[in-house]
Amino acid sequence: MSKKNKLNKKKTKPTPVNFQNTILNLQKFWGDYGCVILQPYDMEVGAGTFHPATTLRSLGPKSWKAAYVQPSRRPTDGRYGKNPNRLQHYYQFQVIVKPSPDDIKKIFLRSLSKIGINHNEHDIRFVEDDWESPTLGAAGRGWEVWCDGMEITQFTYFQQMAGIECNPVSVELTYGLERICMFTQKKSNVFELDWNDDGIKYKDVFHQAEKEFSSYNFEFANTESLLKNFEIAENECKFLLEKKLSLPAYDQCLKASHIFNLLDARGVIGVAQRTEYISRIRELAKGSGQCWLESQK
């Protein structure tokens, strides 16, 4: 395709949605749908799923609809701001609906059109991906949603959470916001994304953080104190569970989980030992889930 053609095409297209408007549009869409719009959870988590509004609220019989953006930390994914696709801190937009509505797929596809993805022009595919989180003792059936070969959303029906069968079943939609915007804004570097329409780019907001946190995650995080902190969080969680305080206990479980991720990034956990750490965190998650479920009765 010649350059000229490309330009012509651009002219007929509306300006792509900037990063902050993508979030706002999704909030508006799901808010209108009837979701409680929440703010991010104020702790370090690896994914939007870890927010208690998803993990704990997906348990028990009560209906629940919520949506929120969640900064997610994956220490091992840090690339010192040098890789155009990888970040150790990024945003997920999370929707949770319990019980799952029959027309959720249709509604989801409609939400895509609000952020600039027209599913008659792009190859939207539902590719099997039965999600599992061994740390949360969670499992679901669902798909990665691909748009022209790129994963843009995780679409999951929870079957189990914190080791407990889900009944009724919730559906969870997790939008990868940076990827979606790279797609809609036609950028091949995440740092070049337009954050707003006032010239601020993603790099202006996060590039320094990516550099510094990558150094911390990979080089300077003190593994000895992390190992200690893991134990402290674990014990605190168990103690709080004895006191039947499900939410504070779950916070400690989140802490342990993040510390584990940091230890993993520091490369001090081998394959076999991973299993052991993961099962320790799972015990905490199970305890918290059980405790929360009992509080719902």
């Binding site: 095409k9 008659n120 190859d123 939207i124 070969g149 091949s188």
Partner: peptide, 16 residues
């Protein structure tokens, strides 16, 4: 799963 009328699908996949 769709005909690529505007060529977006090919370009998108190549990018990925």
């Amino acid at each position: 799963n769709l005909s690529d009328k505007k060529g977006y699908i090919k370009i998108g996949n190549q990018k990925v």
